[in-house]
Measured scan of single mutants.
Amino acid sequence: MDLSALRVEEVQNVINAMQKILECPICLELIKEPVSTKCDHIFCKFCMLKLLNQKKGPSQCPLCKNDITKRSLQESTRFSQLVEELLKIICAFQLDTGLEYANSYNFAKKENNSPEHLKDEVSIIQSMGYRNRAKRLLQSEPENPSLQETSLSVQLSNLGTVRTLRTKQRIQPQKTSVYIELGSDSSEDTVNKATYCSVGDQELLQITPQGTRDEISLDSAKKAACEFSETDVTNTEHHQPSNNDLNTTEKRAAERHPEKYQGSSVSNLHVEPCGTNTHASSLQHENSSLLLTKDRMNVEKAEFCNKSKQPGLARSQHNRWAGSKETCNDRRTPSTEKKVDLNADPLCERKEWNKQKLPCSENPRDTEDVPWITLNSSIQKVNEWFSRSDELLGSDDSHDGESESNAKVADVLDVLNEVDEYSGSSEKIDLLASDPHEALICKSERVHSKSVESNIEDKIFGKTYRKKASLPNLSHVTENLIIGAFVTEPQIIQERPLTNKLKRKRRPTSGL
């Protein structure tokens, strides 16, 4: 017993010596996670971090007073192994002897410093981030199933929210409404489509400006004509009531908005009720001829604005009016007729031209339509002016008669200019590109209106002035400009410049 007691005391002394060697000089306990400095002193990692955080910048070693920084600290694995072995020896000594260790306080702390507990403390002390800490805590505590279930439920809930957000973003663009038309193969669909197009076009005519009305009406008319041609002859009974509906809707729209509806009346003529396609083609032919005449008058307007600064050229074209007008009339009417003589009366030419125009518009179905009313009214106005011209010709002399006839021709041009508003800008460009020769010939008609105004002003003063002067240069210039014009009389060319000069002198006297 005595020997055993001596041996136990010796073992205890050895353990105490080893414990003092492996103590931390700051906390005076076994080193936890030993860290060595540049001066080869060993301290606990937790104690050194606490010391360095007390001051900004480098701190001093507690043993040798040298500078220490966080970067200079290094882990010493050898001392950590020695500490672990010492703890194992102490545990074995207690089991063999059955005696508690003399320094129970220190031993209890040593026992608490088992490797499992050290790992837990290291995970908390090290600044490795929240995710690494959570992982280490889960690994160190596998015995708690409640914690695992809560963490898994949190992760699953987070994943569910992310997935639901993604699915919502994908589903939202798919919620856009999609309209699908289910059509049938019955023959009544074509008639319904035609009526739908006509009503939609009328609404567009009321909303859209004048520049786009003609294009819309032309497209709708083409669509309706194609649909009529596709149907068989057996379905004509269905077409006639639908066309009557079209007429009623167009008349109502014309009564409500007459000014807006006139812009599309000329282009919509071939959508009118037709028994066969031949009647629609004839109407299209007549409309094309009318559009040609209207576009020519538009060309004359532009030329008149350009040549208004040259009064000499405008005056020299006075007698070329009849010849150029004959050529335009021959090209406007498709019928083959002989040219009228140069010395014939211009009023007779106008009456013949009106007689040619009237039969074209005397179809029984055309008179029933609303768009032809505008053309009939313009023709009636022309006839009224010609009836007035006959009365004026009986009273005035030959020279005054010529000037009045020219004035009436200008009035006719004004009437025809009203129809110019109905034609589109695209048709003007096509006419100029296809028929430049006709445009040059028809330019002379509009330029002549300037000389007509001068004659009217001469009649106000009650006299006409003449001068025997020749202007050969002007006649040559005008002959080169206009290709299809005829030779003019030299006496009238000489008379016109004198009248304008005298007018300039006598205007201030009349004002006084």
Rank of each mutant, 00 (worst) to 15 (best):
D2Q: 11
D2T: 13
L3A: 09
L3S: 12
L3T: 04
L3F: 14
L3N: 15
S4G: 10
L6H: 15
L6P: 13
E9R: 06
V11F: 14
I15G: 00
I15L: 01
N16Q: 09
A17L: 01
A17G: 12
Q19K: 11
Q19N: 12
K20R: 15
K20L: 15
L22G: 01
L22E: 00
P25D: 01
P25I: 02
I26C: 10
I26W: 11
L28S: 02
E29W: 09
E29N: 04
E29V: 13
E29G: 10
L30C: 11
L30Q: 13
I31C: 15
I31P: 15
I31M: 13
K32R: 10
E33W: 11
E33N: 13
E33Q: 00
P34D: 03
V35F: 01
T37W: 01
K38A: 09
C39M: 00
H41W: 01
H41P: 00
I42S: 02
I42T: 06
I42F: 10
F43Y: 13
C44A: 02
C44Y: 15
K45N: 11
C47T: 01
L49G: 04
K50L: 14
N53D: 11
N53K: 10
N53L: 10
Q54H: 01
K55M: 07
K55R: 11
K55P: 03
K56R: 12
K56W: 10
K56S: 13
G57L: 07
P58C: 10
P58S: 04
S59R: 12
Q60L: 12
Q60R: 10
Q60G: 07
C61L: 00
K65S: 02
K65P: 09
K65A: 13
N66L: 05
D67H: 03
D67A: 05
I68F: 05
I68E: 01
I68M: 04
K70L: 13
K70R: 03
L73R: 01
L73I: 01
Q74D: 03
E75C: 01
E75M: 12
E75D: 15
S76M: 05
S76Q: 09
S76E: 03
R78S: 14
R78N: 12
R78D: 00
F79W: 14
F79C: 08
F79E: 02
S80G: 12
S80K: 12
S80D: 05
Q81E: 06
Q81M: 08
V83S: 01
E84P: 14
K88G: 10
K88N: 13
I89W: 01
I89A: 10
I89E: 00
I90Y: 13
I90H: 14
C91F: 15
A92W: 01
A92G: 04
F93M: 00
Q94Y: 05
Q94M: 04
L95V: 15
D96G: 01
T97K: 01
T97P: 00
G98Q: 13
L99H: 14
L99S: 04
L99Y: 03
Y101A: 06
Y101R: 04
A102T: 10
A102Y: 03
A102S: 06
A102D: 07
N103C: 11
N103R: 11
S104R: 06
S104E: 03
S104P: 13
Y105E: 06
N106P: 12
N106F: 06
N106I: 02
F107D: 03
A108Y: 13
A108M: 06
A108D: 09
A108I: 14
K110R: 02
K110Q: 15
E111S: 07
N112W: 07
N113C: 05
P115H: 04
P115Q: 08
P115M: 04
P115D: 14
H117V: 11
H117G: 10
L118G: 08
D120I: 15
D120M: 14
D120W: 15
D120E: 09
E121Q: 11
E121T: 00
V122T: 09
S123D: 04
I125L: 13
I125C: 08
I125A: 06
I125W: 12
Q126W: 10
S127W: 15
S127T: 02
M128K: 05
M128G: 09
M128I: 10
G129V: 11
G129M: 07
R131Q: 12
N132Q: 15
A134T: 04
K135E: 10
K135F: 08
K135D: 11
R136W: 15
L137W: 09
L138T: 03
Q139T: 01
Q139D: 03
Q139N: 07
Q139S: 03
S140Y: 04
S140C: 05
E141C: 01
P142I: 03
P142A: 03
P142L: 12
E143L: 10
E143S: 03
E143H: 06
N144K: 09
N144A: 04
P145N: 07
S146D: 01
S146V: 08
S146K: 06
S146W: 06
S146C: 01
L147E: 05
Q148H: 11
Q148T: 11
E149V: 09
T150M: 14
T150R: 11
T150V: 04
T150L: 07
T150W: 02
S151G: 09
S151H: 02
L152E: 13
L152C: 14
L152K: 02
S153R: 07
S153V: 09
V154Q: 05
V154R: 05
Q155E: 07
Q155S: 09
Q155P: 05
Q155Y: 08
L156M: 00
L156N: 15
S157Y: 13
N158R: 05
N158E: 02
N158A: 12
N158T: 15
L159M: 15
L159F: 03
L159E: 02
G160H: 10
T161C: 12
T161Q: 12
V162W: 03
R163Q: 04
R163C: 05
R163L: 10
R163N: 11
R163A: 10
R163K: 09
L165P: 12
L165M: 06
R166V: 07
R166M: 04
T167C: 07
T167N: 05
T167L: 05
T167V: 11
K168Y: 12
K168L: 11
Q169W: 14
R170H: 09
I171L: 09
Q172C: 06
Q172S: 04
P173M: 13
Q174P: 14
Q174G: 09
K175H: 04
K175D: 09
K175W: 06
K175V: 07
S177A: 08
V178M: 08
Y179D: 09
Y179R: 09
Y179L: 11
L182H: 01
L182V: 11
G183D: 15
S184V: 09
D185W: 04
D185R: 07
D185I: 04
D185P: 13
D185H: 00
D185V: 08
D185C: 11
S186I: 04
S186G: 09
S186Y: 14
S186E: 11
E188S: 09
E188Q: 08
E188L: 09
D189A: 09
D189P: 04
D189Q: 05
V191Y: 05
N247F: 02
G263V: 13
S281Y: 12
